[in-house]
């Protein structure tokens, strides 16, 4: 029997699905071993009969369910619950699903304030926030595991195609994928000495490197004084070889989320920096260190008192 696959994307950008497609030719034999039963980006299965009175979201039974994106409104929550009900194994695909991702940055503000801001930009006609036939927003953006049980976490923004392919292959072969245990630094070829600059620079000038040499000859960007989230970020980008951002000679910003699911990227990184003797108060925007992992209560609206100061 074929293994059935259902997929949904919730509060996300579709990048994860594009990454899935980026598996390329290898995707085709993989798809041949899988039976797609629900995948809105590629196929036309609907939640319910268009004219039916049924408002329940129905998704066909599947052995494996991929869900990308976090949960930000009641509709997404319903879809997630439907996926959970229909899928034996639920995979959180991408950092939005595992840790909230970029959209969870909104968690730093009360949701109502944020909506107000969006609907009062310079070009927007002054109106109330839409509230008819639009699913109400939740109080904040949640990761999937905050709202339901998740069986496999596959972080990444987006997850590397080779990782997605391997997880699917493992699943088809009846294997449990091994979780990542190391950070981006594991496969980062840059030179590290352990001695770093005692300050952090903004990335307003390029790193120092010899453009004719490989990145292996470049000094670690963190040691060069640039905030690189590599040490607190789960590895795996860049096809598990040279980290993708390092290939572009820019520092990591943490898109795979923390190395261990429950770790706190901001705390881990700031502690690392402070331990090196760097004054954390010189960091202009520390919350940005949680830009990919703002769910799980990590980012929350500032207290009134703090915001005033």
């Amino acid at each position: 029997m074929n293994i059935r696959l259902a997929a949904e994307s919730l509060h996300s950008c579709s990048g994860c699905e594009i990454s899935l497609l980026n598996i390329g030719e290898a995707l085709i034999p993989l798809l041949n071993r899988l039976q797609l039963v629900h995948l809105p980006l590629l196929m036309d299965h609907k939640y319910s009969d268009p004219a039916g009175s049924e408002t329940e979201i129905s998704i066909p039974k599947a052995e494996i369910g991929l869900v990308s994106g976090g949960v930000a409104n009641t509709h997404q929550l319903q879809v997630l619950e439907a996926m959970r009900k229909s899928c034996t194994t639920l995979v959180a695909l991408g950092t939005c699903g595992t840790h909230g991702g970029i959209p969870a940055m909104i968690n730093e503000w009360p949701m109502a304030d944020a909506l107000q801001t969006v609907f009062s930009t310079v070009t927007t006609e002054p109106v109330d926030v839409p509230n008819q036939d639009t699913p109400p927003m939740l109080d904040r953006v949640y990761s999937l595991d905050e709202k339901t049980d998740v069986d496999i976490f596959l972080p990444g923004c987006p997850p590397d195609p080779t990782i997605i392919a391997r997880v699917l292959e493992d699943f088809l072969d009846g294997l449990t994928p091994e979780p990542v245990t190391k950070s981006v630094c594991d496969t980062c070829p840059t030179r590290r000495t352990g001695k770093s600059e005692r300050k952090l620079l903004r990335f307003t000038a390029n790193a120092r490197f010899d453009s004719n040499e490989s990145t292996a000859s470049m000094q670690c960007l963190l040691e060069q004084g640039f905030l690189c989230m590599g040490p607190v970020t789960a590895g795996g980008c860049g096809h598990q070889g040279e980290p993708a951002c390092i290939r572009a000679r820019v520092p990591c910003r943490g898109c795979y989320g923390p190395v261990r699911h429950q770790d706190n990227q901001m705390l881990g990184m700031l502690n690392g920096l402070v331990s090196q003797g760097i004054d954390f108060k010189t960091i202009i925007d520390r919350k940005s260190m949680l830009r990919f992992s703002g769910a799980h209560g990590r980012l929350r609206p500032l207290k009134e008192k703090k915001r005033a100061s």
Partner: peptide
């Protein structure tokens, strides 16, 4: 070894310079 990835943050903090890449 399972979790260390040589990020080197611990090297300079060691007061005894006991850690090397």
């Amino acid at each position: 070894d399972k979790h260390c990835d040589g990020c080197a943050l611990c090297i300079d903090v060691c007061p005894y310079q006991a850690i090397t890449p």
